[in-house]
Amino acid sequence: MALAKRIIPCLDCDKGRVVKGVKFEDIRDAGDPVEISRRYSDAGADEITFLDITASSEGRETTVQTVEAIAGQVFIPLTVGGGIRTLEDIRTMLNAGADKVSINTAAVVNPEFVREAAARFGSQCIVVAVDAKKVSEAGEPGRWEIFTHGGRKPTGLDAIEWVKRMVSYGAGEILLTSMDRDGTKIGFDLALNRAVSDAVDVPVIASGGVGELQHLVDGVLEGGADAVLAASIFHFGEYTIPQAKQYMAEHGIEMRL
């Protein structure tokens, strides 16, 4: 009898198409986010995160329509991130059917935005996404810095202080990505995960570096994650969501099976 840990597949979308590529056996149109979201939901995904990487305003319109289409067919929580900069952006996405929005760069540029967003829409729908990179030397206590613009732009902000501040401003959840591990398939930065999870009361989603199922287990048991987010291991069919859930359950983690 306990709250289950969550598995969250992440879809990176550009102009309404999934761009990282997805390999399912019998889907011809592999890039349709609605179809893919439904597949993941049917397979037992606990939530879906939709990351909009579209830059143009026409593309944003398509994104809103895509969110509407997903929300009309997939009845599990949906988080939308990417380019959320104003209260109006949040209103638009929630009206389209998103349950939560993920705020990254806009929070760094204007931290008060998070406070306003939480006050207006409630902490339950405000996720602050954090891209952190290790800056401590070997042998030193762990220290991580926040980066923006896909990890290219340092901010000088200490990751642990930053997440504490964001939670005090009303963030209801932290989506934590290790820039050092993203795309490496060598596992989460567990020390970073543990430090962040211990620093805040709100749930922490671990992201970046998953290559095998044991990494998901480690993220929860060692990193203290409340949820694990992964893209490529599911997209390319290396593992299915039921396999991942079963594996985690066999390692003593409470899951929704």
């Binding site: 709250l3 289950a4 969550r6 606990d46 902490s123 339950q124 209801g172």
Partner: peptide
């Protein structure tokens, strides 16, 4: 953690 968030 609070909020109580997820499947229970």
């Amino acid at each position: 953690k609070v909020p109580h968030m997820g499947w229970n």
